[in-house]
Design a protein around this nucleic acid. Structure first.
Length: 225
DNA sequence: AACCAGGACGTGA
DNA sequence: TCACGTCATGGT
């Protein structure tokens, strides 16, 4: 029998999907897909194709993108990624070889460049150590610069693991701002089929919904009360 | 011209 | 544990 909560979680997904259509996350530089309905960047998306990443380089690109996008709008992350690509540094060994000065200069558009330069080198060292193996959540969380959301983003989008990603939008949308990260994560994971494709799409849809200004108006009203 | 983005970390209470 | 301050660029 289907619980009320499960119904609700699926229904929210269906509504978001109907409203925004498949999002085609995680965006990749070498992927020519576009999504004109999307806010912000319109490049790098691969709608209804959950087969990415196709190789280690794309996997690595998603991982460094996950660091760079922390509290940062995606178009700024794209600029940083393009700079790194120009330096041929979307490659673990080459990225580590960059001087801090060059690395910081390249990722500057994404903000917090002093911290993120360190974070990038930290996660890159782990990536090399893994030799293609999938990291555990705990392994990722040990890395300075990788918190709950980044760890889950890496697992879900780079490694296709069914780990639900919770962000600020997720809590706002469900009005769960007072709940802890792990609690919200479990709400989704315990009430949805453990399919990485579904988790990828669901999170991307929540972000798209959250970006719309309509929500922000509602948010401000509900918070003021 | 404020405000905020696809957070994480360090600190003091 | 928890509430804050900090980090930084660029778009709206």
């Amino acid at each position: 029998m289907m619980s009320e909560t499960k119904n609700r979680m699926i229904n929210i997904y269906k509504q978001l999907l109907k409203k925004h259509k498949p999002q085609g996350w995680w965006p990749l530089l070498n992927c020519k897909g576009t999504n004109p309905t999307k806010t912000g960047s319109i490049k790098g998306y691969h709608t209804k194709d959950y087969s990415y990443p196709h190789n280690e380089q794309e996997k690595f690109e998603i991982i460094i993108g996950a660091i760079l996008t922390q509290n940062t709008a995606w178009p700024n992350v794209e600029k940083a990624l393009l700079n790194l690509k120009k330096l041929k540094a979307i490659n673990p060994k080459k990225l580590l070889k960059l001087t801090d000065k060059k690395l910081k200069e390249a990722i500057k558009p994404a903000g917090y460049f002093n911290q993120k330069a360190n974070y990038l080198k930290n996660i890159t060292e782990l990536f090399i150590k893994l030799k293609g193996k999938t990291p555990t959540r705990e392994e990722l969380l040990k890395i300075k610069g990788v918190g709950n959301e980044t760890a889950d983003s890496i697992l879900l989008y780079a490694y296709k693991q069914p780990e639900f990603v919770v962000d600020a939008y997720t809590k706002r949308l469900l009005k769960l701002e007072d709940k802890k990260y792990e609690e919200v994560k479990e709400l989704f994971e315990k009430n949805l089929p453990k399919k990485y494709e579904l988790y990828q799409e669901y999170h991307a849809l929540i972000v798209e919904e959250g970006k719309r200004k309509v929500n922000k108006v509602i948010k401000k009203q509900t918070l003021k009360r």
